[in-house]
């Protein structure tokens, strides 16, 4: 029978794994989100108005057409940075969302947890590069917390259970 300490270590690691997995998965999915405005014409004098005035409402929607890896404003700032080649930025923009989703799913399911954590830590580190160039210290500190959490998880990966592929 496992000791109380083993169970606590397992729960501790599980919570960390779930948090990091959800964080990456939802962040990745949100990169496919956008808004769709109402196109219902409002009534004036009992008839739909002829001007094109629509009800003030918009719905949040998801789809490939809404995808944006690096937020637009940030992308433009990064594109002007001499140390960031534009082709690399384009590739990064395309893969960021899918990488976050895949690493999030892998972590939640326990698919090669070590490599998933490594990938996640590298993604957060890579995001830091751009923010260092743009001197966004708050964002750098925020990402550093994520990197630390990924590192702490790796240090404690021996407590991993409920993993589909536990060897890696």
């Amino acid at each position: 029978m496992k000791s109380d300490s083993d169970i606590a270590n397992f729960f501790g690691f599980l919570i960390l794994r779930v948090w990091l997995g959800i964080r990456a998965l939802i962040t990745g999915i949100e990169k496919f989100s956008g808004s769709r405005s109402s196109e219902v014409a409002v009534n004036v004098d009992g008839e739909p108005n002829s001007y094109g005035l629509t009800a003030d409402a918009s719905d949040k929607v998801y789809g490939f057409s809404h995808y944006g890896g690096v937020p637009e404003a940030l992308y433009k700032q990064l594109a002007d940075e001499p140390l960031i080649p534009e082709f690399a930025l384009k590739i990064y923009d395309i893969i960021l969302g899918p990488v976050l989703i895949l690493s999030g799913i892998a972590l939640l399911l326990g698919l090669a947890t070590r490599y998933s954590l490594l990938a996640m830590g590298l993604v957060y580190s890579s995001l830091t590069v751009g923010l260092i160039l743009l001197k966004q210290d708050g964002g750098i500190a925020w990402l550093a917390i994520h990197v630390l959490l990924a590192a702490v998880a790796l240090f404690n990966v021996r407590h991993n259970r409920f993993a589909v592929i536990s060897k890696l």
């Binding site: 405005s37 014409a41 108005n49 094109g52 629509t54 009800a55 003030d56």
Partner: peptide
């Protein structure tokens, strides 16, 4: 106003 514009401002 009773309603708004559901498109980018330049589209109309």
């Amino acid at each position: 106003l009773p309603g708004g514009l559901s498109k980018p401002p330049h589209q109309p």
